[in-house]
Write a protein that binds this DNA or RNA. Structure first.
Lengths: 338, 338
DNA sequence: CTGAAAGCGCTAACAT
DNA sequence: ATGTTAGCGCTTTCAG
C-alpha cells in the first residue's frame, strides 16, 4: 500500500511536510509545495492510513454504539440518528447488538475500548444485573480517565451524560389518557426487569393510575419482553386470569403488537372490547390493524443529539443531559370501555 | 493508558513475552511466566490497544458495511446477520448508511479503506451512476490488491463474490402467482432506476408476464422508490391513469405498503378490487392490514453468509457466490380479480 | 517554511 | 523459553 513516505518522495519533500499538507494541519506551507504534495498523492491514489494516524494522535475518529438489537426498529432509528450525527464530523460508527446479554455487552464494551473508540454510546437501557453493573463501571471509569466519552441514550445505572426520552412522564400520560377515556382497570405489559428502562415506564404507569385515582394491583401487571412473543404471552396470561381489564398498555410497540395479535386470535375486538396502547411510535405502529395508539418518541433525534453530545465530550466541552418529551399519538386502537 | 510495557515490567518479563501470552500466540511460554503476565495484566486492568496491534499486523479485525439505510428493516436484518457472523470471530462492524447517494457512498468506501477494514461489504444494491461505478471500481481494485476482501449482498456492477437473493426468480414467481389467480393486467411498482436491484426485479416481473402469456406494456410499470411515499405516489399514478389493473406487485414491501395506504384512502378494497404483493417479507409485512402477500427473502441469512464469506476471503480461502432462493408467502392481500 | 528524528503500542523476526 | 530490536505509517516537537 502506498504510504506517506511514497508521496513525500514523489513530491520531493520530507514526510513531515507531506503529513502537514495531507492531514490538513494549520502549519504554514508554501503554496507550491502544497500543490506538489497533493498532486503526488492523487497520482499515487494515496489513502492515508487511519490506523497509523490514530496510533500517533491517540484519536481514532470512531465511536462505538451498543444496542439491544439493531434489527429492532426502535434502535435502528437511534443508530441512524447517531450515524448522521457522527458522519457530519467525519467519524465512523461501530455497531454492536448485545441482545441484552450481560456477558455479550461486557465483551463489546471491552472490544470497543480496545479499539480505542473516541466515544462509547449505550443506546439501549442499561442492564440491571449487579455483577454487570460493577464490571462495566470499572471499565468505563478507566476509559473515561483516558479521555473516553460515554453517553447513554436510555436509563443506565452508570452515571454519565445522557439523551433520554421521558419514559416515566410518557407512560404516565398514556395511563392518564386511558383513564380519561373511562377505563377503570388498565393493565400494563412491562418490559423485562433486566433492563433499566422497564422500571421507568412501570413507574410512570403507576403514577398515572394514582393520578387518576385508580387502584393499582399486581394482577394488572404482566411481564413482556420487548418483543412480539412477549406481548402475546402477556396478553394470554392476562386474559386467562381474566382480571376484567378493558385496556392494555404495553411498554413497547412490539409488545403492544403481540397483544394485538393475541386479542385478534381470541376474537376480542380492539378497541370495542379492549383498548391497546404502546410506547415508541416508530415504524409499523401506524400501519397495523388497527393503527396503534402510542407514546411517540423521536428516536432519530435521540441518536442525533447523542452523537453531538458524544463529540462535544471528546473535545472536553461541557454538556447537559437532556430529557426529550414524548408525544401522545391517539389512533384507532384505543377508545372508551364497552 | 496502561500499555504492554507496563504489564511486562510488572510481571518482570520483556514486552515480547508479554505480547506472546496476551495475544494468544502459539509460541511456547513457561506456565509460570504465563500466569505472572496474566496476573499483572489483570491487576493493571490492561486493555490491549487494537490500534497498535492493527498497525503492527496490518489486520484490524474490523469489517465495514455500506447499506442504503440502516433504519430500513430490510437492511437492519442484513446488518444483524453480518454482525452475528463477524462477532463469532471477534470482528467489529462499521456501519454506514449511504442513502443511495453516490458521493456519500464513495466517501464511505474511502473512509472504510482508510480505516483499513479487513473486509468491505455492500449490503445494498450497487448504484447505476457510471461515474460512481468507475470511481468505486478504482478504489476497490486498489483495495483488493492490498488484500482487502469485498463482498456484495445485492446486485452490484463491481464483480466480486456475493450472497444475493434470487431477485429475478422471485419477482417472476410472484408475477406468475398473480397470473395464476386469474389476473390479466398486473402492474409493477419498480424500485428506483438508480439501484441495480431494481433492474433484476423488473426483469423477473417481465419474464413472469411472458411465461404467463400476458402482455407487458410500459403503462403497467411505474417507478417507486423503495419507500412508502414512493409506493403511494406510484399507486396514485396508476389509478389516475386507470389502466384497469387488478393486481399491483411492488418491488419492495415498503413500496407495497405505500400502495396499500393509497388504495385504502381511495376506498379501493384489497384484495377484492385490487390485489397487492410485495418483496422482502421481513418486519411488518405480516402485520399490516391486510397482511401482505410477499416474496420472502431471508435477509438475516444473507448477512450471516456474507460475513462468513468475507472472513474466508480475508484468509485467502476460495469462496463461491451464492444465490439464495426466495419463498412465496401468500397472505390476505392477494386473491382472484373481481 | 521545511526537515530530522523520536515515538505512539504492539508484533515478529532473529538472537540467545 | 525468553529477550532484543526493528519496524508498522503517521504526527509532532525541535532545529534550522
Amino acid at each position: 500500500m502506498t504510504s506517506l513516505a511514497d508521496v513525500a518522495k514523489r513530491a520531493g519533500v520530507s514526510s513531515a511536510t507531506a503529513s502537514r499538507v495531507l492531514s490538513g494541519s494549520s502549519h504554514p506551507i508554501r503554496r507550491e509545495t502544497r500543490e506538489q504534495v497533493h498532486e503526488a498523492a492523487r497520482e499515487l491514489g494515496f489513502v492515508p492510513n487511519q490506523v497509523a494516524r490514530a496510533l500517533a494522535t491517540s484519536r481514532t475518529t470512531t465511536v462505538g454504539v451498543i444496542v439491544h438489537d439493531i434489527a429492532d426498529q426502535y434502535f435502528a432509528e437511534v443508530v441512524r440518528g447517531l450515524e448522521d450525527g457522527v458522519q457530519a464530523e467525519g467519524y465512523q460508527l461501530f455497531v454492536c447488538s448485545s441482545d441484552r446479554d450481560p456477558a455479550r455487552e461486557l465483551g463489546y464494551v471491552e472490544a470497543l475500548i480496545a479499539n480505542r473508540v473516541d466515544a462509547l454510546v449505550f443506546a439501549g437501557g442499561g442492564l440491571t444485573d449487579p455483577d454487570y453493573q460493577r464490571r462495566v463501571a470499572d471499565r468505563l471509569d478507566a476509559y473515561r480517565r483516558n479521555k473516553g466519552a460515554v453517553v447513554a441514550l436510555a436509563p443506565h445505572a452508570y452515571r454519565t451524560p445522557s439523551v433520554i426520552v421521558d419514559n416515566r412522564g410518557g407512560a404516565q400520560t398514556m395511563t392518564e389518557h386511558l383513564a380519561s377515556l373511562g377505563h377503570k382497570r388498565i393493565a400494563f405489559v412491562s418490559g423485562p426487569p433486566s433492563v433499566e428502562t422497564s422500571a421507568h415506564r412501570l413507574e410512570g404507569y403507576q403514577r398515572g393510575l394514582a393520578a387518576a385515582g385508580l387502584p393499582a394491583g399486581p394482577e394488572l401487571v404482566v411481564e413482556g419482553s420487548f418483543d412480539m412473543e412477549g406481548g402475546r404471552r402477556a396478553a394470554a396470561d392476562l386474559l386467562d386470569r381474566d382480571p376484567g381489564v378493558t385496556a392494555i398498555f404495553a411498554a413497547t410497540d412490539v409488545d403492544a403488537l403481540g397483544v394485538l395479535l393475541e386479542l385478534r386470535s381470541r376474537r376480542v375486538r380492539v378497541p370495542d372490547d379492549v383498548s391497546v396502547a404502546g410506547f415508541g411510535g416508530g415504524g409499523f405502529a401506524a400501519l397495523v390493524d388497527p393503527p396503534l395508539t402510542t407514546m411517540g418518541a423521536r428516536m432519530h433525534e435521540v441518536g442525533l443529539l447523542g452523537a453531538r453530545m458524544a463529540l462535544r465530550l471528546t473535545r472536553g466541552e461541557r454538556v447537559r443531559s437532556v430529557l426529550l418529551p414524548t408525544e401522545l399519538l391517539v389512533r384507532a386502537s384505543t377508545g372508551p370501555p364497552p
